[in-house]
Design a protein around this nucleic acid. Structure first.
Length: 577
DNA sequence: GCCGTTTTCGGCCCGACTGTTTTCAGTCG
């Protein structure tokens, strides 16, 4: 069984949980959690990188000891420390940490005093009224646990796709903006960092009448339950199940608060450490030297206080952005307005909802100058995929429509299935008539790594191949990514002069951020495409831009940030057979 | 367990809210 970054991260997380319940040194626990985050967010496949007997690459927060454990997990899939901890503490007990209100101390107490080791044990203890008798527990705490258990065991914890959360966030922010004394409302947190999913919403309000804002927040129509309610903070659960935290600050603390609540945790800790080294204390109210407030009106002032330029929210993950900032090496991130065209869209010929002309006009309405029509190929029966004859007819139609278009070009393409053996789902004769061939995996998702990678590489090898669409084939929250050696795919793409897609559909956002960064570092251009199935879907490009920025992409890294004139020679290498 | 433009040892981010407390621990973000 190959060991991937996610497996290694899971072992480190498990160790951290068990150490925490054992009451171990909190900083040691933090080191394991930090390592899990670093490994989990890494583009490079660690186990594969160690394969050739090479040393563990130097990673932030991973010293000699953790590097040793990294190698051990890569080799064996687990590590001795985890085994020892599991003999001391029942492994299932970490499930209890997911219950809101239960942390390591209380879980340990439940275990030591009541012999509770599983969610079912806890259920029984609650039913028999034993929990409320424990020191430090009470009727309310037991009631909260009972309620959490009734709501389907451990924690709600499901993350929501960014695009879904955006609908709740934008209407709630609009609602709050109407409260008395409000100056600014910003949705901060992972939402502002444009993470592909969010666990909750953090809304920051700058204003002068806290009571009115908290009142309006807790009284919002969509609120199902108020979890906490103070003078400067409140938390609710919406009917959709989404948790929303509200924070209130005075307008002159707005910059410091916005920085603080945008996070991530790792980024904040790193910034505060920098501040500490300069004798500064940084919190959500400002930057302080002793009792004197020296910055905090704006985010820029907070960064400046610790000697950094402004760092865009999408970069604030504690993955090298502080270092890059200090050295003046921050990327000039791509923006929506940089896109000149879109290279992946469907029409009602396959599974889209609009005609070629309607799609082109919608794209032009967004300020784009070109659009590739890329309907599905014949194998995808469910999507009414096109065979050679139907595709040929579509190409003739595109020629006719193009003749009547001013300042806009429709490119001829197809989203061709990469079959299980790596061959393409349409014959060369018709593919050679296209401006670009987008290849995609839509079947045999479960192939083992070697076979899956060879399959994709074989497709990329074809001269006519242009763009690898949604390379991991994942659907966020619904389908795991295929097991692909992305480093090999990226190297092959570079060698063949073809491109990888960042599919902007909110369920895909594929490539992910780490792989975008990896591709750009290797010099492989990214095609940032909507995969629009209707004229409305071009709206999704903004989520793709968010992901691209998280992947440190600049306009120069993106294929369709080029004008049509610049694009054509890049496609020509693969065009026309 | 990590790390070093004060440090190879002694630090390690900071504050709000809740519940069970007579002054604070635990949890959360």
């Amino acid at each position: 069984m190959p060991v991937h970054n996610a497996d290694i991260a899971a072992v480190f997380e498990q160790i951290a949980d068990l150490l925490e319940i054992s009451g171990d040194n909190p900083f040691r626990i933090r080191a394991y959690r930090n390592a899990a985050r670093v490994i989990g967010g890494l583009g490079l496949d660690v186990a594969a990188a160690l394969g050739g007997g090479r040393g563990v690459p130097k990673l932030p927060g991973i010293g000699a000891d953790l590097a040793g454990k990294l190698r051990e997990i890569a080799d064996t899939g687990s590590c001795k420390l985890l085994g020892e901890l599991q003999r001391r503490v029942p492994a299932a007990i970490t499930e209890l940490l997911k219950i809101p209100g239960l942390g390591p101390k209380r879980v340990k107490q439940l275990h030591d005093a009541l012999d509770v080791a599983t969610v079912n044990d806890l259920r029984a203890a609650v039913r028999e009224g034993r929990v409320r008798k424990l020191k430090g527990f009470g009727d309310k705490t037991e009631g909260r646990i009972r309620q959490a258990l009734a709501h389907g065991g451990a924690g709600g914890g499901e993350r929501m796709p960014l695009a879904v959360a955006a609908q709740y966030a934008e209407s709630l922010a609009g609602h709050l903006a109407k409260a008395r004394g409000v100056e600014t409302v910003t949705v901060a947190g992972s939402y502002r960092r444009m993470r592909e999913t969010v666990g909750d919403l953090d809304i920051l309000v700058a204003g002068r009448d806290g009571g009115a804002v908290i009142e309006r927040f807790c009284g919002y129509d969509e609120v199902k339950e108020v979890l906490a309610r103070g003078n400067t903070r409140a938390a609710v659960v919406l009917k959709s199940g989404l948790q929303v935290d509200l924070r209130l600050v005075a307008p002159d603390s707005y910059g410091a608060a916005l920085h603080y609540f945008t996070g991530s945790k790792a980024h904040n800790i790193a910034v505060r450490k920098l501040g500490q080294a300069k004798g500064l204390k940084i919190n959500e109210y400002g930057v302080f030297r002793g009792a004197k407030r020296v910055a905090g009106d704006t985010e820029e002032s907070v960064f400046a206080a610790v000697g950094l330029p402004y760092i865009a929210p999408e970069l604030r993950e504690g993955s090298g952005e502080l270092d890059a900032g200090r050295r003046g090496k921050l990327p000039e991130l791509i923006e929506l307005a940089d896109l000149k065209g879109d290279l992946h869209a469907h029409t009602k010929a396959s599974d889209g909802h609009n005609s070629i002309r309607e799609m082109a006009e919608a794209a032009r309405g967004r300020g784009l100058a070109y659009l590739a029509i890329t309907d599905h190929s014949q194998r995808l029966k469910i999507a009414h995929g096109l065979d050679s004859r139907r595709l040929g007819a579509q190409l003739d139609e595109i020629d006719r429509i193009n003749e009547g278009l001013k300042n806009f070009a429709i490119l001829k393409g197809a989203e061709v299935d990469i079959l299980e053996d790596g061959s393409l789902d349409l014959p060369d004769a018709v593919l050679e008539r296209l401006d670009l061939v987008i290849g995609a995996v839509h079947s045999a998702f479960a192939l083992p790594r070697r076979k899956q990678t060879d399959r994709v590489l074989r497709a990329i090898d074809r001269r006519c191949f242009t763009v690898l669409a949604h390379p991991s084939a994942r659907l966020i929250g619904a389908r795991e990514p295929i097991d692909l050696d992305m480093a090999r795919v990226i190297r092959a793409a570079r060698a063949r002069g073809c491109f990888l897609e960042l599919n902007a559909h909110p369920e895909r956002l594929d490539l992910n951020d780490a792989h975008c960064r990896m591709a750009a570092e290797e010099g492989v251009l990214i095609a940032l495409n909507s995969d629009a199935h209707s004229a409305l879907d071009f709206d999704n490009l903004r989520f793709g831009i968010g992901q691209a920025r998280r992947g440190w992409l600049e306009a120069k890294d993106v294929l369709n940030a080029r004008t049509l004139a610049q694009l054509k020679p890049l496609l020509a290498r693969t065009m026309g057979g």
